[in-house]
Simulated scan of single mutants.
Amino acid sequence: MKGKLLSTMFAVACATSMSYAQTREVSGVVTSSDGTPINGASISVVGANTATQSDASGRFKISVSSGASLNVSYIGYTAQRVSIGNSTNLSIVLASDNQTLEEVVVVGYAVSNKSVVGSFSRVSAKDIEGRPNANALEALQGKVPGLQVFTSTGEPSATQSVRLNGVGSINGGTTPLYVLDGIPVADGSIVSMNPNDFESVTVLKDASAT
C-alpha cells in the first residue's frame, strides 16, 4: 500500500514538473523596418488569453507554452504571426502598411470618397481674412477662377449676381444653388451673414455638381 502511494506521488510530481517545463517566458523587441522601436505593439499568444504590449523601447515579455505562436500587431503596420519554436529572445520587425486613402472631398452638402472627376475650388477663412468685404459673395471675387460677382447698386445689403464661367444654361436658371451646412438656402441668406463666420466655401464648377 505504501509503495502504491509513493508511486502515485512520484507520478503527480513528474506531471507537475512537466507542465511547468512546458511553459516558459519569452522576451523580445518589436521594431519597424527602419529600426525604430514600436511602443504599444500588441503581442498575444495564438489560441490563448495571454497578451501583453511592448514598452517605449519596443521590448516585451510573455509566458508561452511549447510550440506556441505569437500574433504581433500595431496600427499602421501589417500584423505578423511569429512561431516561437525553441527561441527565448525574439526580434520582430513589422512592415509599414502603406494603404492609399481614397480622396475625400467635402462639398458643403455631402462628403464624397469616390473618385473626383469634377472641378471644384475651396476658399478657406484664411484666404479672405483681413479683406474689407461686405458679404461672403464679395469675398469670393478673385479667389475662384471663372467666378464673377456683379453688384447692381452700391448698397451693402443688395444681393449680388453670381456667374460661374459665364452664362450657359439652356433650360435652367443661372443663379447658383447655395447650400449652407447641408441645407439649401436663398442667396439673400448668404448676403446677410457675416463673412467672418464662414469656415470655408466650396464652389462646384461643372456638371458633376448635379
Rank of each mutant, 00 (worst) to 15 (best):
I43G: 00
P145R: 11
I183K: 07
N86V: 01
S19R: 06
V162A: 06
E199A: 05
K2F: 15
L164V: 00
S152A: 06
F198L: 05
L70G: 01
V12N: 08
L70C: 00
G172F: 15
A41Y: 01
P184I: 00
N135E: 11
L180M: 12
S57R: 06
T210P: 08
A209P: 06
T50G: 12
L6Y: 07
S17G: 15
N71H: 10
G35P: 01
A13D: 08
Y20K: 13
T210S: 14
D97N: 10
S54R: 06
T31I: 05
G172D: 15
G76M: 05
S65F: 02
G118K: 04
G40R: 09
E199R: 03
L90H: 15
G35W: 01
C14S: 12
V93Q: 04
D181T: 01
G118N: 03
A125D: 06
Y74C: 12
G130I: 09
F10R: 15
E129Y: 15
N86I: 01
Y20E: 13
N89V: 10
L6M: 07
V179C: 03
I183R: 04
A51C: 11
V144E: 03
N196P: 04
V116Q: 14
S7W: 12
E103L: 05
Y109A: 14
V106D: 14
N49R: 13
S115W: 05
I92N: 00
G67F: 05
M9E: 13
E129N: 15
S42F: 03
T151H: 14
S83E: 06
G172L: 14
G47H: 08
N49D: 14
E138R: 13
N135L: 08
S65T: 05
I170W: 13
P156Y: 01
S115D: 10
T50H: 10
G142R: 02
L137V: 05
T78N: 07
N196M: 09
Q53W: 08
S169N: 07
S208I: 06
S124E: 14
T88I: 07
T202H: 11
L204A: 06
A136L: 05
G85Y: 02
G168K: 05
G118H: 02
T8Q: 15
A79L: 03
G188R: 14
P156L: 00
I170Y: 12
